[in-house]
Design a protein around this nucleic acid. Structure first.
Length: 383
RNA sequence: GCGAAAGUAGCUCAGUUGGUAGAGCCCCAGAUUGUGGAUCUGGUUGUCGCGGGAUCGUGCCCCGUCUUUCGCC
């Protein structure tokens, strides 16, 4: 596999019957084959996992978060310790969220101005400020392979007039972000907003697409998966994606339901991240190819079966469901780790099979089977 | 042996001057979408130690009894 220049996005195969495609994005820390699921490692760790666990599972790219890492440990320490890759000893590609979402979802006393957002830390109440310049400066120090442009992620539902103003703000910020200096080899991804309003999504997508020659390397659909009903999520995606360049990666932020990702891939989306597999692991739910089910349920108290029969992950290849259930029941730390290992493994293998299906032009069949298993008649663990 | 206190949900305990038995935890179920191992929402559970008595009516009053804990011989 000959190396390509950083930022290259190769379309390796377009599926014959749908908009699905398999691609390869070249980053400073190596290539990422898409469609890809990116485990979320907000605070410089995918919770409960170490870098070598992620290597074992075969994760090709993970996330880190600007907002959280800026608050702790802070950029001074991050700089002293050589950036985010060195800090957590992750040798693969890293994507950092801009902090735009967290400023709106976690902090209090927000005041939005043309320059950015004044807010209070959710940790100690300290008054801070983050705008396009600040966010990109932090991401530069973090040294991520992909940095997200600072955007305004508004709640659902929001008034159309407010959404319209917000989209303009996000676009002005995007232009400013692109003028900021970046870490060597760092790619910049812009974010389409517009909430449930199709014409605003289209406008935002077209304006961002026009910035591709100003250094925009990829495109994301934002403002979905923020609590709205599923039909609105899919509409937000279908209202945005058709107006984005075909030859650049499309990233749907926060989307991570297996079936929803399958549908999005069918619309031509390439990258996903979500806290569901890791968070739900810590709440006692396992994901399987037949849908999610609660391992913590008393029904599995004495089950000798693995969490998912046939699974080859470090959890299933060694431990019983009854054991994992016991660990959950007693709040043992190992429970969270084992289920996180399983859920990430499940997600990564699911995406791998999806890529294979696309390459062999049978994505339609893959999608039908996924629908049957995940939505039509999920087994919910009753094997 | 004597004295005192306490017996109410699986656990820890509330329960007004007598008027249809409660909370927290646990357990069970559900939620969780650019991460708070956080949180939220529902749900099950009782011979009020036992036996008498007074009362229209008692977890509560009276008598007896059993058990536990503590103190004293």
């Amino acid at each position: 596999m000959p190396a390509c220049p950083i930022g290259t996005y190769e379309i390796l195969h377009e599926e014959a019957h749908t908009g699905a495609r398999v691609g390869r994005l070249w980053t400073k820390h190596g290539p990422v084959e898409t469609p890809v699921f990116m485990p979320v490692g907000t605070q410089a760790t995918v919770k409960t996992l170490a870098a070598d666990d992620l290597e074992t599972l075969g994760a090709s790219i993970i996330l880190g978060n600007t907002y959280h890492l800026m608050l702790r440990p802070g950029m001074e320490i991050m700089e002293q310790l050589g950036g985010l890759h060195a800090f957590q000893d992750w040798k693969g590609p890293l994507l950092t969220d801009s902090g735009g979402f967290q400023v709106f979802s976690l902090s209090s006393l927000r005041k939005i101005t043309e320059d950015g957002v004044a807010f209070q830390s959710h940790i100690d109440g300290k008054r801070l400020f983050m705008g396009p310049k600040e966010s990109m400066a932090v991401q530069r120090v973090l040294g991520s392979d992909i940095a997200m442009l600072f955007d305004e992620c508004i709640p659902y539902p929001s008034e159309e007039s407010y959404v319209a103003r917000s989209v303009e703000q996000t676009l002005r910020w995007a232009k400013l972000c692109l003028q900021q200096p970046r870490a060597e080899g760092q790619l910049y991804f812009g974010i389409v907003q517009g909430s449930e309003f199709g014409h605003l999504r289209k406008h935002c997508a077209l304006e961002l697409a026009a910035m591709r020659n100003d250094g925009l390397d990829g495109f994301a659909v934002g403002g979905v998966s923020v609590g709205e009903p599923e039909p609105f999520i899919m509409k937000g995606i279908s209202d945005s994606v058709p107006f984005l360049p075909l030859d650049r990666p499309r990233y749907v932020m926060g989307l991570g339901d297996l079936w929803q990702m399958t549908q999005a891939v069918g619309m031509g989306c390439d990258m996903f991240d979500c806290v569901i597999p890791t968070r739900n692991a810590r709440n006692g739910s396992a994901f399987t190819n037949d849908g999610p089910y609660p391992v913590k349920a008393g029904a599995w108290k004495a089950s000798p079966l693995p969490v998912e029969p046939g699974c080859t992950c470090p959890c299933c290849s060694r431990y019983s469901r009854g054991y994992v259930r016991h660990l959950l029941n007693t709040s043992e730390l190992l429970a969270y780790r084992l289920l996180t290992l399983h859920n990430i493994h499940c997600y990564l293998r699911f995406m791998e099979r999806m890529r294979d299906a696309i390459k062999s032009d049978c994505f339609t069949e893959f999608k039908a089977e996924a629908f049957a298993r995940l939505r039509e008649s999920p087994k919910r663990g009753h094997y």
